[in-house]
Computed example of a mutant assay.
Amino acid sequence: MKLINDFETFQARIKAINIEIENAFVDQENEVGPIYDGALDSAKYFDNTRLKILWLMKEPYDDEREGYWSLPELFTTKYDTFFSDLIKGTSGRTWQPVVYISYGILNEFKNWDEIPFISNDPSIVKSLEKVAWVNIQKLPSETGKSTNMKNIYSAYNNHKQLIQNQIEILNPDVIICGNTFKVLKDYFGAPKEVTYDMIEYYEIGKRLVINAYHPAQLQITRERYVNNIVECVKNWSRRNERLNKNIS
């Protein structure tokens, strides 16, 4: 897909992909529609020249399982609700690590000890305005907060071109997979796997792809999870900077 160089085209592509999502992801029998995702603030994501981060996740959750709402719209027009429901609510176990990691990466690779707690400095949540969030399955989870991976594989296999196009429109520098790398193996190809502590990562062209636990994981401490990902991105970014200097 051709690189998008202007914001107007970027917005048009987002609008077009959302129409595709609306047509592709619909449960007519149960009258359930998609939950739209993507760049949480399209203007600030597009203008971010540091590192564009995309979180590639499994599926959204909706208490009533109705759908037909937009995560970016919630973030940009109903931020107080976004904060109370997703950051401080029951979804906080997922979203809070995402905030800490995104903030750390976008602020000179701060580690856990340097990042303020959300409870002490709620403004760090605003770092998400430069981040994209893409769910493979766009319909609300059929199984509540416990994902059936068969539904995720099915969603991707049925709509893989759409998902791949959405990623390419967003053109991230860093993709952080919340236990989803295995689902998109055909898209990522067969890159060389490297391990950094508890995560695996792949350098694919000019892009870093991290295969990590889901942010709500309980296998390791939140501190270790945050530091693993921030340090991995830092090391990759610094290697690229040195390489580019040597080339020039």
Score class of each variant (00 low, 15 high):
Leu128Ile: 11
Trp69Asn: 06
Ala24Thr: 04
Pro97Asp: 10
Ile35Trp: 00
Leu3Glu: 14
Arg239Lys: 14
Lys160Gly: 03
Glu168Ala: 12
Gln166Ala: 06
Glu203Thr: 03
Asn240His: 08
Leu51Gly: 04
Gly104Trp: 00
Val134Phe: 09
Asn111Cys: 06
Tyr156Ser: 09
Asn246Thr: 15
His214Pro: 04
Gln166Cys: 04
Ala132Ile: 06
Val230Ala: 00
Val134Ile: 13
Ile210Leu: 12
Phe83Trp: 03
Glu31Ala: 12
Ile118Lys: 14
Asn30Tyr: 01
Ile163Val: 15
Ser127Asp: 03
Lys192Glu: 12
Asp41Gln: 11
Leu86Arg: 08
Phe83Arg: 10
Ile175Asp: 00
Ile101Phe: 08
Thr221Gly: 14
Phe181Leu: 04
Glu142Asn: 13
Asp62Pro: 02
Glu66Gln: 01
Met198Ile: 12
Thr195Trp: 06
Ala216Ser: 15
Asn240Glu: 14
Ser237Tyr: 06
Asp121Thr: 03
Asp37Val: 15
Phe75Gln: 03
Arg239Asn: 14
Tyr79Phe: 15
Glu64Gln: 12
Glu223Ala: 02
Ile87His: 00
Trp236Phe: 13
Ile167Trp: 05
Asn228Ile: 00
Tyr153Arg: 12
Trp69Ile: 00
Lys88Tyr: 11
Asp47His: 03
Thr143Ile: 09
Arg207Ala: 05
Tyr79Thr: 14
Lys160Ala: 06
Asn240Ile: 15
Lys192Gly: 09
Asn5Thr: 03
Ser237Pro: 01
Thr94Lys: 02
Asn171Arg: 04
Arg238Ala: 12
Arg242Phe: 11
Ile21Phe: 01
Leu128Phe: 14
Phe10Met: 07
Pro116Thr: 15
Leu56Pro: 08
Lys138Cys: 04
Glu193Cys: 14
Ala12Thr: 07
Gln219Ala: 10
